[in-house]
Structure formats: C-alpha cells, structure tokens
Simulated scan of single mutants.
Amino acid sequence: MKLTLTIKIIYNFCLIIILLLVWSEEANAGELSERLSNFPQWEKLTSVQPPKGDLVYPEWMAGTWEVKSTLVDLAAPLAPDIVTPGFEGNRRQLNQPVSFLVRFVKEQFSQKDAARSPLTRLKLIPQTTSTNIVADRAFNSLNLARSYLGDEAVLSVKVDPDSPNRQITFLRSERQLVSIVTARATETTPDGKFITAEVFQQLFKGASRPYLNSVESTTAYHQLSTSSPAIEADQVTAVYLSPQDPDYFAAGSRPVALYRYRLEFFPHKTNTQNVEQAK
C-alpha cells in the first residue's frame, strides 16, 4: 500500500464515530452543549477527567439500532498552513449517508472486576451482572469500520478484557489501529439531551513508521417521540496533532480538522420489542 493511501486510511479512522468505544465525570454545567453550538471555534477540552470504567449510556439507548450517519459539515481551522491528508477528499462524503448496526447492552463484569467491587463482597449484586447500559464496543467498531473501509479491509476488533477503554482494530497486511480512551466527560441538559465527550489516542502500526494522533468526539444524543428515528444525535469529531508532528507547536491547542455528523437511530427490526421495553 502506498504511503499516501496509508495516511488516508489513518485519517479516515480518525473520523470513525466513537459510539463504540462506572461512572464518568460530569462536565461543568452547559460546557459541552455550548461547545457544540460554537462549532467550528474549538480548542482542546480542559474539563475532561481520566475514564473510570466504561461509558454508561441512558436506559433509552439500550437495544440494537440501525444508525444512519451523515457528514453535514467539515472545517480545517488552520488551513491553508496546516491541512491533514485526506481532508479535501473527505468533502466527497458530505451529505452521503452511511448505515451500520450498533448495540447497547447491560454491562458484563469479569470475575476479576466483580471481585474488586465492595458491593460484590457484601453480596449485594451478582458477580457478572450490572444495570449499566454500555456500548458493545467490538460489535459496534467492527460494523462501523467495515461500513467505511469495506469488509475485506477490516479483519476484526478486539477489546482489552481488562479495560473497555482500549481496543485494537486488525487490518489487512498486518496493520493495526490501537485506540485508547484517555479522558471523558458527560453532561445532561435540561431538555433531556445526553452529551458525551471522549478524548483518545490512536496509534497506527504496520506502516514504515508508527503514526500517533489525538482525537476528540463530542456527541449530543436526544430521544425522540417517534420510532423512525427514535434517537437523533449531533456529533463533532476533532483531530489534533501529536507531539511528534513537526506542526505540533504551530497548531497549539487547536484542532487541525473538524467533522460534524448527523446521526439517526432506527430500532433494528429483530429487536424492536426489547428497545420499547428499555424506554
């Protein structure tokens, strides 16, 4: 694979929606919603905290969904001085919906995790169950990656059994993308929106030299009164340069690329009944 194609794949992975990737720290009131409304005037988040376990979603997100994702806007705040590879090519994705399946399930604790819990030691909860709703990260990531890159390009996705915040995507030609969530914040607005922000490091391995960058995904989910769609979301993915990049100091705390998506969640036909029960 040529270097230019490899770099383009790296940046396309940066755009993959972080639905995929316990209790998360609350952001300052209104900070995340204000951040979305200020697009594309962004800088790095400062109020995020190291993740504690997995990201917990509201009960109304439980179930299997067909998601329609549409890129509705993009920006290169530092152009023309700094423009990421593949940015101009990604303009072709504007207003072109992509569909894939995702699911949100009850969290499953390993025996080791359960043994650490004081609730388990007091026999207040079973060792392997939880009422928390979390993303099925391996299922979601695999479906999402294949929808963008093709079935043959993506071999599998593995989530670290000791940490839901670390996963590896295995690609053809012995290439790997290692994604690690390093910080997180959540916010619930008065009108019922659930907003998440996750910051993660991505390491692309298998090319002539490893490539590292930092990505932030901020998403506002909103439950609708209809079933078609049942949930909508506004999502912005921001790409930041790593310290190894020669333009790192010139970019400072500003992103070099921003992508805004509209997400629509439709109940999967085989799971409609379970989704209704979870509301």
Rank of each mutant, 00 (worst) to 15 (best):
A238I: 06
Q201M: 04
V236P: 01
F249I: 13
T237G: 04
T196S: 13
S217M: 08
V181D: 03
A207W: 04
A233N: 03
L203V: 13
A220E: 02
T188R: 05
T186P: 02
P246Q: 00
P210V: 08
Q235G: 01
S253G: 13
F194P: 00
R260E: 00
T189W: 13
S173N: 03
I180M: 09
D234T: 10
D247I: 01
Q223G: 02
D234L: 11
P210Q: 08
R260K: 07
A183E: 10
T237S: 11
I180E: 13
R184V: 15
L258Y: 02
E174C: 04
R260S: 00
E232D: 05
E187K: 14
S214W: 15
A238E: 06
Y248W: 10
Y221W: 13
S179T: 14
S228E: 11
L212I: 07
A230Y: 03
K205E: 12
D234N: 13
L203Y: 02
T182N: 12
S214K: 12
V215H: 06
F194S: 05
R260I: 00
A220Q: 05
G252A: 13
K205A: 13
Y221F: 15
F194A: 06
E232L: 00
V236H: 10
F204K: 14
S208H: 03
H222R: 15
T189H: 12
S225E: 12
Q176D: 00
L258K: 06
L203P: 03
I231Q: 00
Y240L: 02
I195P: 10
V178C: 04
Q201C: 03
F204L: 14
A257T: 07
N213C: 03
I231N: 00
A257L: 09
A185H: 03
L212C: 03
P229V: 08
Q176Y: 06
P229Q: 06
R184Y: 08
V178T: 12
R254K: 14
Q223K: 15
A251Q: 11
Q235L: 02
P190Y: 12
S228F: 02
K205N: 12
A230K: 15
A230S: 15
A238D: 04
A197Q: 08
F200G: 07
T182C: 03
S242G: 15
L177Y: 05
L177H: 06
N213W: 02
Q201T: 12
T226M: 11
V239D: 15
P255V: 08
A251D: 14
F204W: 15
Y259A: 04
Q244T: 12
S214T: 15
S228P: 00
R184F: 08
T226Q: 15
P229M: 06
T219G: 09
K193Y: 04
S214I: 14
I231W: 01
A233M: 01
S179E: 15
A257M: 10
I231E: 02
Q223I: 03
G206M: 08
V239Y: 08
G206Y: 10
K193I: 05
